[in-house]
Computed example of a mutant assay.
Amino acid sequence: MTVSRAERRQRSEQRILGAARTLFAERGFERTTIRAVAARAGVDPALVMQHFGTKDDLFRRAVQAPPPDERAESPEGLVDHLLDTLGLKMGGLSEQSLAMMRSMLTHPDASATARAALGAQIDRLAAGIDAPDARLRAALLTTIMLGVTVGHQLLDIEELRDVPPEELAALLRPVLHALLPA
Rank of each mutant, 00 (worst) to 15 (best):
S4G: 07
R5V: 13
E7I: 05
R8M: 10
R9W: 11
R11A: 14
R15F: 10
I16A: 09
L17S: 07
T22S: 13
A25C: 13
G28H: 11
G28M: 12
A36Y: 04
R40N: 00
A41V: 01
G42F: 00
G42D: 07
V43Q: 05
L47K: 12
V48N: 03
G53C: 01
G53W: 07
L58D: 01
L58C: 05
A62P: 10
A62K: 04
Q64D: 13
P68S: 10
R71W: 02
E73V: 10
E73R: 15
S74E: 00
V79F: 01
H81M: 01
T85E: 08
T85R: 15
M90P: 01
G92M: 08
L93T: 11
E95G: 12
M100P: 04
M100F: 08
T106N: 14
H107C: 08
A116H: 14
A117V: 13
I122K: 04
D123T: 03
A126K: 12
G128V: 02
D133E: 03
D133P: 00
L136G: 05
R137P: 07
A138G: 07
L141H: 04
T142I: 02
I144R: 02
L146K: 09
G147K: 09
H152Y: 12
R161A: 06
D162V: 07
V163S: 06
A170G: 02
H177F: 02
H177W: 03
A178T: 01
A178R: 06
A182I: 09
